[in-house]
Design a binder for these strands. Structure first.
Ligand SMILES: Nc1ncnc2c1ncn2[C@@H]1O[C@H](COP(=O)(O)OP(=O)(O)OP(=O)(O)O)[C@@H](O)[C@H]1O
Length: 674
DNA sequence: CGTTAGAGGATTTTT
DNA sequence: TCCTCTAACG
């Protein structure tokens, strides 16, 4: 039997209420995720539901993995068979099983944003579309929202506006080319899986039969396709439990719609509502600050949230002349805190930023201060160009119709095939309605290709064919190692990289990649090429978080969603940065404020806010004001706020910091000998 | 014809 | 600052 005494009464109610629709609406740190985990364990142990009938959807793979571990801890190895996954991972899994019904070949590949952008640029160029001033990035955003709203290219073709028609052209070709490549993008995952379930009752029944208890975490950030997905999976039993907090809706820019959470009782009549009001994470001081900030939002469902953790340190404010100094002070404060109290771990500290590029000054400051850190976000390992190219080879191994990857593989190492030859081959494709790989295979039939180029293409095709065979018969890591050797990949990398430092980095990245393949083979349930490619496509920055290593964590506020840390720093608390100037211009201030609420409520014990008075961007110097969110925090919870104005407190804190930083510098110059 | 060096522009947040 | 596109070189 699972012991439910580790839960408070409403939590227990939510866990025991297993049948029918259930909505858990509650503020930050009230144990929503914990309830889902216990609910899974309760269903397994007390209700004897077989694990394969359980489905829990989380926001990131990392959260899924963590829940899986907690569940295993509570319920033992039987938990392994429960499905805990993100919407996208679940979607891909279903699509692999049902590819034909979904209208794709089973070896489809997944295009990430980088691939999508390349494709958009290519189409714009090929078709000489003139989107005056609009970037590929913006166009891709429009494609994505068109897809999510179910708009077909034809709807644009018939619009009177010339630009709309142009977009219709781009959109139509984007769809055609991804399909011809047997490739799907992130939007397609949800689009295809919902269409599949809608149009194939027997498939739908199969999954409804399989998943009998459904749970969704972070339901406030669900979009309409995800909502459709979950309702399609939901059988007649209607055993759906969702948890969420409308104050933590921070993805509306990506199509998420918090109304889906708020209208749950309308969507599922007879739903039970449970509210959780005790926060177990933060001190009263921190919670008071968070509540005060979020109260400024007008569109929200007011809710109670209290903490029994009385008192607690008041919030500190650090100010600096510029971003680098700000980062230096943050790094210095962490180092100092750790020196003063060696029991504290580096990994107890998290620095949250609004945008990825704010991570850079932090990284540099941490390096200079000898502060161990891990970055979440920025460019992840698999995004590095030398790794992307290798992955392009792997994608071609799996699916030679993937033109984008084929071209990327063809392009490096250099083999004497350039734009002109490629153009000829493309023309040949269009004449015969072939795909690019077929044109490669028949290169000798294509006129006007120089003999050197022809020979190079044939060698390339042989390479691909040979390795496609090897990848079918050999272990993934083995075959990839051979591929790297055969293409003299490392040598080519070295020759192509002028800078000695980055040359070294690239080579070691490739070695690391080969190592990661071996680790993948040893640990994965599906240690195949397909399994690896899916994992790489679905992995996200937050999945890299490693709580076992003792390092301070630098990450975006978005990536911090659902996490908690004893000591939290909010970096760059300036108007224009946070709230971002874009949000201020477009009137999206409430979502920024929710983000601030999320950020503040990550802190368990201490919270520090930092801001600069100036910053440089693209060589221009900008004067900065402290964030309006700082003004929204009552002076009483700011350090010395009772006697000083926030400005005075900031001033004094700045002076103290000055001393600390100077001291630290001296210490460092002295090689840390006192 | 293919490759490379350097100018010029940009992405807020991400599954 | 990183990344893509262009122009000149070999
Ligand atoms: N009944 C309880 N007793 C003790 N600790 C609890 C209890 N419920 C939750 N906690 C603790 O409170 C913290 C927050 O829980 P959890 O992450 O589940 O909250 P949440 O509502 O999902 O938070 P958020 O919405 O901010 O992501 C965790 O450390 C958890 O272990």
């Amino acid at each position: 039997m699972l012991d439910l005494t580790a839960l408070n009464p409403p939590q227990r109610q939510a866990v025991s209420h297993t049948e029918g629709p259930l909505l858990i609406l509650a503020g930050a740190g009230s144990g929503k995720t914990r309830v889902i985990t216990y609910r899974l364990a309760h269903l397994l142990l007390n209700k004897k539901v077989p694990a394969q009938h359980l489905l829990a959807v989380t926001f990131t793979n990392k959260a899924a993995q963590e829940m899986q571990e907690r569940l295993k801890h509570l319920a033992g190895p039987a938990a392994q068979k429960a499905t805990i996954s993100t919407f996208h991972s679940l979607g891909v899994r279903i699509l692999r099983q049902q590819a034909a019904a979904a209208g794709y070949r089973r070896n489809f590949v997944i295009y990430d944003q980088h691939d999508q952008l390349t494709l958009v640029r290519e189409i714009v160029k090929d078709r000489a579309l003139d989107f005056a001033g609009h970037t590929a990035f913006e166009l891709l955003g429009r494609i994505s929202s068109a897809k999510n709203q179910g708009e077909s290219p034809e709807t644009f073709a018939n619009k009177p506006n010339a630009e709309e028609m142009l977009f219709g052209d781009l959109y139509a070709h984007y769809l055609e080319r991804t399909r011809n490549c047997n490739a799907i993008d992130f939007d397609d995952i949800l689009l295809l899986v919902t269409n599949l379930l809608e149009q194939h009752p027997e498939v739908r029944r199969h999954y409804q039969e399989r998943y009998r208890y459904l749970m969704v975490d972070e339901y406030q950030d669900t979009n309409s396709l995800q909502y459709r997905f979950i309702t399609l999976l939901l059988g007649e039993h209607r055993n759906l439990c969702v948890v969420g907090d409308d104050d933590q809706a921070i993805y509306s820019w990506r199509g998420a719609n918090p109304e889906i959470l708020l209208r749950f009782e309308e969507h599922f009549p007879g739903a039970r509502l449970v509210k959780l009001e005790q926060n177990y994470r933060s001190t009263q001081v921190i919670l008071h600050a968070a509540n005060a900030v979020i109260k400024n939002n007008r569109r929200r469902k007011a809710k109670e949230l209290w903490s029994a953790l009385s008192g607690g340190a008041r919030l500190r404010i650090l100010t600096a002349e510029n971003e680098n100094e700000e980062a230096e002070k943050v790094a210095g404060t962490i180092t100092m805190r750790k020196l003063l109290d060696p029991k504290v771990r580096f990994s107890d500290f998290a620095v949250l930023v609004r945008t990825n590029f704010q991570l850079r000054p932090l990284e540099e400051a941490a390096r200079n201060a000898n502060l161990p850190y891990q970055l979440i976000g920025g460019t992840s390992f698999y995004e590095r160009p030398e790794i992307r190219t290798l992955i392009a080879y792997l994608k071609v191994m799996r699916n030679p119709d993937d033109e984008l990857s084929l071209k990327r593989a063809l392009d490096f190492p250099k083999r004497g095939i350039g734009a002109t030859t490629l153009l000829r081959l493309h023309q040949y494709c269009q004449q015969h309605n072939y795909n690019l790989y077929r044109a490669f295979q028949e290169a000798q039939q294509v006129g006007e290709v120089r003999s050197a180029a022809l020979h190079a293409i044939q060698t390339f095709v042989h390479l691909i064919e040979d390795f496609r065979r090897r990848f079918r018969h050999e272990k993934l890591s083995q075959a990839t190692q051979e591929l790297v050797a055969q293409t003299a990949y490392l040598k080519a990398l070295e020759e192509a990289t002028a800078d000695a430092k980055s040359r070294e980095v690239k080579v070691s990245n490739v070695r690391e990649f080969l190592g990661s393949l071996q680790r993948f083979e040893q640990t994965s349930e599906d240690p195949t090429l397909a399994g690896f490619l899916d994992r790489v496509s679905l992995i996200s920055d937050s999945d890299y978080l490693n709580e076992k290593v003792d390092r301070a964590i630098f990450l975006t506020m978005h990536a911090a969603k659902g996490l908690e840390f004893p000591y939290v720093f909010l970096f760059g608390m300036n108007d224009g940065q946070f709230p971002s100037s874009r949000a201020l211009e477009s009137g999206a201030i409430e979502e920024e404020r929710r983000l601030c609420y999320v950020a503040i409520t990550r802190a368990q014990r201490e919270l520090t806010l930092s801001y600069s008075t100036r910053k440089t961007r693209y060589k221009e110097v900008l004067e900065l004001q402290p964030s309006r969110f700082i003004q929204e925090i009552p002076a009483a919870v700011l350090e010395n706020g009772g006697t000083e104005s926030p400005e005075q407190a900031a001033q004094r804190a700045a002076e103290e910091q000055e001393d600390l930083v100077t001291m630290l510098r001296r210490l460092r110059e002295n090689n840390f000998k006192v």
